[in-house]
Design a protein around this nucleic acid. Structure first.
Length: 558
RNA sequence: GCCCCCGUAGCUCAACUGGAUAGAGCGCCGGCCUUCUAAGCCGGGGGUUGCAGGUUCGAGUCCUGCCGGGGGCGCCA
């Protein structure tokens, strides 16, 4: 148990002893937080404020009593408690507590912060799923960075994550790609709804592109695009467990790519089965010559078409079958990562999911907001059809994988981001990622200077020594280190890997302050040096872990 | 018209799902390298959290209504 959760437990127990009993109304607020000012202690708790109404005493009175309990429970690890403001309980911890906390971090080793999820789940995480009709854009890069980092965070928190890329290799857009390839090769104007980008000319051998039929060209074009997409993702450090072909859901498979799909074998009749299941559930009806799904009865605005008058199935129908297929593979939870332009699609997907008997809570859709591109101060849109795209490859080439990932993960998925390419180029050297990496490299340098032998001796010594008189910077750094566990839980539960980026930066800042104020190698007495070497090691590992969750390298030197 | 997301320092974004005096980075001004990495450090300026109400001990966060930006409301994907 980490020092922090132990402390948390002590606070809860103390509150319980005072008569708080239950959890209060509604969701329980965090009972421990890091206060904004040092005057407010190392940690503060609002339990008294939450609990006072139910026990019928004033918050300050309750806080006093909880404080008494804590004094008994924590003994000499607690320096003092204060009741402040409307009833906050401020805890001032003794150096002994900090020493114990550091030991805890070091004992956990590389697994510090790991496996704290309440219950590990088997999760299918689908992300990027870009159409195989062109190169990946910067927007896809955001999805890739987000999804991959989320997967890492979830895994670290104790879940099992299956990464999946859904390929829309079926339908009109694929045909349009074929037409565009041919038109381009023949020097004819590309059709209005076709793909205008220059890359189209390079997808298929020109000679072939002039002569082959559209079907064939579409197939070749998709294959070429996919190859490139996979290569780009590889460069970006993102790998998928399954590439799932939409065409594999249909009984006839014109694009033929499904052989590579893990799902290929059993998927063929999935679409037919899904439709039959929906029909059996009484969720479909025929009207105006089309087949409709009653999604409006399950929270959607209106009913949706599954099968057109022409007899062709809609994309929606495929997607339903796809989700049913995922469910049949035994995942406890599905997470779909979609772009903001698809948010209108969420209600119908969830409705269909429920119509098929799916647990509404088990299907989660995360919407990632747009990336707006600026070039020379001008807003440019990214449309594959219009061809004015900035590719992920270009971004990687300009600023590198680490800077790109850190930049894209630096903001919440819930907010639109602006990418000014010119600025990104100019400022890539100022990217905060280097600050974090620099702190890591600096620690490596300090540890090198001390030498491996001295470091391992320090670790042994650390188990025995008493608490040295700590510098404020040391306490601040340890508090930040200890916070990592809950940051991981937070990031996992809220599907918010950007918190890890923020945390990494804060940890690096805290270390830099420590580095400024506290000499490590050669510190006197030797116990103090041992303590600080241990602190450096713990910090280095935690930075490396945090960067690893972001898919960013942690260099030994810079 | 209806629905969803966003609005926080000059710019890009945080803020521990309701906590105390809203924080970082970049940019701007001024200082710091015979001492474990100056990709660094220290100091300074910068805010009515879009606006108006409401809920309560306490609101950037929750509720209502406006304003502004984006997206959605296809037998497109």
């Amino acid at each position: 148990m980490s020092a922090l959760s132990e402390l948390q437990g002590a606070v809860r127990a103390a509150a319980g002893a005072v008569g708080a009993g239950g959890e209060g109304k509604g969701r329980q607020a965090p009972s421990l937080q890091r206060p904004p000012k040092p005057d407010f202690g190392d940690y503060s708790s609002n339990v008294a404020l939450l609990v006072a109404p139910t026990v019928g005493r004033s918050p300050r009175e309750v806080a006093e009593q909880v404080g008494e309990q804590l004094r008994d429970a924590l003994g000499e690890r607690l320096e003092r408690v204060e009741v402040a403001g409307p009833g906050f309980l401020n805890l001032f911890l003794a150096d002994q507590w900090f020493l114990a906390a550091l030991r805890g971090v070091l004992e956990a080793g590389d697994r510090f912060g790991a496996g704290e999820a309440a219950a590990g789940e088997r999760i299918n995480l689908e992300f990027v799923s870009a159409n195989p009709t062109g190169p990946l854009t910067v927007a896809h890069g955001r999805h890739a960075a987000y999804g991959d980092s989320l997967a890492r965070v979830l895994e670290f928190a104790g879940h099992r994550v299956h990464r999946e890329f859904y390929i829309n290799d079926y339908g009109t857009q694929v045909r349009r790609l074929g037409e565009s390839i041919r038109a381009r090769a023949r020097g004819e104007p590309v059709p209005q709804d076709g793909y205008q980008g220059d890359y189209v000319a390079d997808l298929v051998d020109p000679q072939l592109a002039r002569e082959a039929d559209v079907e064939e060209l579409a197939r070749l074009g998709v294959a070429a695009c996919l190859e490139e997409i996979e290569a780009t993702l590889e460069r970006f450090g993102v790998r998928f467990d399954t590439w799932f072909f939409e065409s594999s859901l249909h009984s006839s498979r014109p694009s033929g790519g499904s052989a590579e799909s893990e799902a290929g074998g059993g998927a063929a009749e999935t679409l037919g089965r899904a439709l039959a299941d929906l029909e059996r559930a009484g969720a479909v009806y025929r009207a105006d010559g089309a087949l409709w799904l009653r999604t409006s009865e399950l929270g959607d605005d209106r009913d949706r078409v599954l099968e057109r008058t022409s007899g062709e199935h809609t994309y929606f129908a495929s997607d339903i079958a796809y989700h049913q297929h995922k469910r049949a593979r035994g995942f406890e939870r599905l997470i779909d990562v979609w772009g903001a332009d698809h948010h209108g699609y969420v209600a119908r997907m969830k409705a269909a999911w429920q119509a098929l008997g799916g647990d509404p809570d088990a299907l989660e859709v995360v919407i990632v907001q747009f990336v707006h591109l600026l070039e020379r101060g001008e807003r440019t849109s990214m449309s594959k059809r219009q061809g004015n795209i900035v590719t992920l490859d270009e971004l990687i080439e300009e600023i590198g994988v680490d800077a790109a990932r850190f930049f894209l993960l630096g903001r919440s998925h819930d907010t639109t981001v602006e990418v000014d390419l010119d600025l990104a180029r100019e400022e890539s050297a100022e990217n905060p990622v280097y600050y974090v990496q620099y702190a890591h490299a600096r620690i490596a340098s300090v540890l090198r200077k001390a030498g491996a032998q001295r470091v391992s001796q320090a670790l042994e010594r650390l188990g025995e020594l008493g608490p040295p008189a700590l510098d404020p910077a040391e306490r601040a750094l340890i508090k930040r280190l200890v916070a990592f566990s809950e940051e991981v839980v937070e990031a996992a539960e809220r599907r918010a890997p950007h918190r890890i980026a923020a945390y990494a930066l804060e940890l690096a800042q805290e270390f830099t302050a420590f580095y400024r104020d506290c000499r490590v190698v050669g510190a006197e007495p030797p116990d103090l040096e041992a303590f600080r070497l241990g602190l450096c090691l713990a910090t280095q590992r935690t930075i490396a872990t945090a960067l690893g969750l972001l898919g960013v390298a942690a260099p030994e030197s810079m």
